[in-house]
Amino acid sequence: MLCQNCNQREANVHITKIINGVKQELHLCEECARENNEFNIDIMNPFNFASPMSFQNILEGFFEMMGSPYQIPEPVTCPVCHQSFDDFKRTGKMGCANCYRTFNAEITPIIKRVHGNIQHTGKVPKRTGGILKIKRDIERLKEELRVAVMNEEYEKAAKLRDQIKELESKLDK
Score class of each variant (00 low, 15 high):
1 M>V: 07
2 L>A: 05
7 N>R: 04
12 N>P: 02
12 N>D: 14
13 V>L: 10
14 H>A: 14
14 H>Y: 13
14 H>P: 03
15 I>D: 05
15 I>E: 08
18 I>H: 06
19 I>R: 12
20 N>M: 07
23 K>S: 07
25 E>D: 14
26 L>N: 05
27 H>A: 12
31 E>V: 10
33 A>R: 08
34 R>S: 12
34 R>Q: 10
35 E>N: 10
42 D>A: 05
44 M>E: 15
46 P>M: 13
47 F>Q: 13
50 A>Q: 15
51 S>H: 09
51 S>E: 09
51 S>C: 14
52 P>I: 11
57 N>C: 04
58 I>H: 06
58 I>C: 06
60 E>Q: 13
64 E>R: 15
66 M>R: 13
67 G>R: 11
68 S>C: 01
69 P>G: 03
69 P>L: 13
71 Q>M: 14
79 P>D: 13
81 C>R: 09
83 Q>K: 10
83 Q>P: 00
84 S>N: 08
84 S>Y: 11
86 D>H: 11
87 D>G: 01
88 F>Q: 12
88 F>W: 13
92 G>W: 05
99 C>T: 13
99 C>M: 08
102 T>W: 03
102 T>L: 05
103 F>S: 01
104 N>C: 01
106 E>A: 13
108 T>G: 00
108 T>E: 10
109 P>K: 11
111 I>T: 06
112 K>C: 04
114 V>T: 04
115 H>E: 10
115 H>A: 15
115 H>Y: 09
116 G>D: 14
116 G>A: 07
120 H>I: 05
120 H>Y: 13
122 G>C: 06
125 P>M: 07
125 P>V: 06
127 R>C: 02
127 R>M: 07
129 G>F: 04
131 I>W: 00
137 D>G: 00
137 D>S: 14
139 E>D: 10
140 R>N: 08
147 V>W: 02
147 V>H: 07
150 M>G: 03
151 N>L: 05
153 E>G: 01
153 E>W: 02
154 Y>N: 10
154 Y>T: 06
158 A>K: 07
159 K>L: 10
159 K>C: 01
162 D>T: 03
162 D>L: 05
164 I>Q: 03
165 K>N: 01
166 E>G: 01
167 L>R: 10
168 E>V: 01
168 E>K: 04
170 K>L: 03
171 L>D: 02
173 K>T: 04
